[in-house]
Design a protein around this nucleic acid. Structure first.
Length: 419
RNA sequence: GUGGGCGUAGCUCAAGUGGUAGAGCACUGGACUGUGGCUCCAGCUGUUGAGGGUUCGAGUCCCUUCGCCCACCCCA
């Protein structure tokens, strides 16, 4: 027996409907903000992520699915979206039409130990604003992020923001922090000790109680940011709060990907579950060979959203019909009637049972709203019987009358699918 | 990579200290042969995740292995 590979998932009905609903709703919000979809390949060159995410990052060091193709090219299954967007934007010459407001949605891959809300093949919804370094742009992006989450039915949302400053500010702060922590080196947790030389900022994220105690008196990034950076962060908080969002600043918020500069943020739902994150990356595009171009973006973890979302955002099961045809009805008549019915309502045929009762039972188990009965009698009269399962009432209709009968349902259901 | 929990029918789960693998749901048929939901009756479903060991005898004890879940790490 074959099994799905570790960390992957089959999304079955009815859960797949939930995924569809979330995707549809987010696309609608993106459209309202005039963001357009960019679809990039799942396969990317290995080097792209070494350059962008950072060669010392965990993602590159141990989490990428790498493969070598038949010509010896070193490829990876994309572990995140921003680098691909940057690559595509540069490669297709879109830097001449700034600003760009793009979104994407799809599978990503990281070789990690699976756990709640985390898979090896996971799905992100992301957006990037490229070629805009304004405060307004940041406000809009975070507002967009929260609007998407709200649209899919998430309510208890909170966004935490911080600034990592520019390159110089960050280096200065990193040094100060390292110096402070070095004094406590022997008391720090094992993980934190390892990070002390490589990436002391990450220690700020530690959940070890002793570390947290030590960090209480550690220097704050806020002391190393210039007035403009701080001002800007405060304004961002002000505007977003005025829009009704819950925003707070946390000088300890850092992100694990190297390309972030300036603003970083994270969205927490239902208390402290992190479901989305992002930030500004003003140097990435230049780093990847484009001209210097500022940019901000975010990514939402689909699996985490699916976990939290109220399952009943799925549109109530759209009405459908089951055709029950007696076994002596010529098959061509059955196909013909099916085709007619399907112009008006989603329809499937019941398997042939000995008794019509079984067939109706089958239909009701399948949640059909209507049962269409076609037997010898109906055949000779060119009619069908339409039974409404909820009420049990039944009508004899001529075939030409079917359209009118299902007209109301047609508009309600087909319309929705078309959208 | 580290630590913990768990693998028994399609699903949810039983099976005191080792002693004939079971129930509910689901499914199929019948009571009811052109009209569902209720009820009753009958039937179907298994290398107990896999491999090895101890034993007269292992779902149960021991070892190995695989898988799933959870936490850490990291991140969405």
């Amino acid at each position: 027996m074959y099994k799905r590979v570790k960390g992957t998932k089959d999304i079955l009905p009815p859960e797949s409907s939930l995924w569809q609903a979330i995707e549809e709703k987010t696309r609608k919000v993106f459209a309202r903000y005039c963001f357009y979809e960019l679809r990039t390949p799942i396969l990317e060159p290995y080097e792209l992520f070494v350059r962008s995410v950072g060669e010392g990052s965990d993602i590159v060091l141990k989490e990428m699915y790498e493969l070598v193709d038949k010509k010896g090219r070193r490829l990876v299954l994309r572990p995140e979206g921003t680098a691909s967007v940057a690559r595509a934007v540069i490669e297709n010459g879109l830097l001449n039409t700034l600003p760009l407001k793009l979104y994407y949605l799809g599978p990503f891959f990281r070789y990690e130990r699976p756990q709640k809300g985390r898979f090896r093949q996971f799905h992100q919804i992301g957006a990037e604003v490229i070629g805009d370094n304004s405060l307004e742009g940041e406000v809009e992006l975070v507002d967009l992020l929260l609007s998407v989450l709200k649209e899919v039915g998430l309510d208890d949302l909170r966004v935490v923001v911080n600034s990592l400053g520019d390159v110089n500010e960050r280096i200065e702060y990193t040094n100060a922090l390292r110096e402070y922590l070095a004094a406590y080196e022997s008391k720090l947790s094992k993980d934190s000790r390892e990070r002390l030389s490589r990436n002391p900022l990450r220690i700020l994220d530690s959940k070890d109680p002793v570390d947290i105690k030590i960090l209480e008196k550690a220097p704050s990034i806020l002391d190393y940011l210039d007035k403009n950076s701080i001002n800007r962060l405060e304004q961002l908080i002000f505007y977003l709060s005025s829009m009704g969002w819950k925003v707070e600043s946390d000088p300890r918020l850092v992100r694990g990907i190297d390309y972030y500069t300036g603003l970083v943020f994270e969205v927490l739902a239902c208390g402290d579950l992190s479901i989305a994150g992002g930030g500004r990356y003003d140097n990435l595009i230049e780093e990847l060979g484009g001209k210097q171009t500022p940019a901000v973006g975010f990514a939402i973890g689909m699996e985490r959203v699916v976990d939290l979302v109220d399952k009943n955002i799925i549109d109530e099961d759209s009405a459908k019909a089951v055709l029950v045809a007696f076994s002596d009805v010529p098959r061509m008549e059955v196909f013909d009637l099916l085709a007619t019915l399907r112009n008006f309502i989603p329809t499937e045929v019941a398997p042939s049972y000995k008794s019509i009762g079984k067939a109706i039972k089958w239909a009701s188990r399948r949640n059909a709203k209507f049962v269409i009965i076609l037997g010898e009698q109906e055949l000779s009269e060119r009619t069908v019987k339409v039974k409404i399962l909820d009420s049990g009432s039944q009508y004899t209709l001529k075939r030409e009358e079917l359209g009118a009968f299902f007209g109301g349902y047609y508009e309600k259901n087909m319309d929705r699918n078309a959208r």
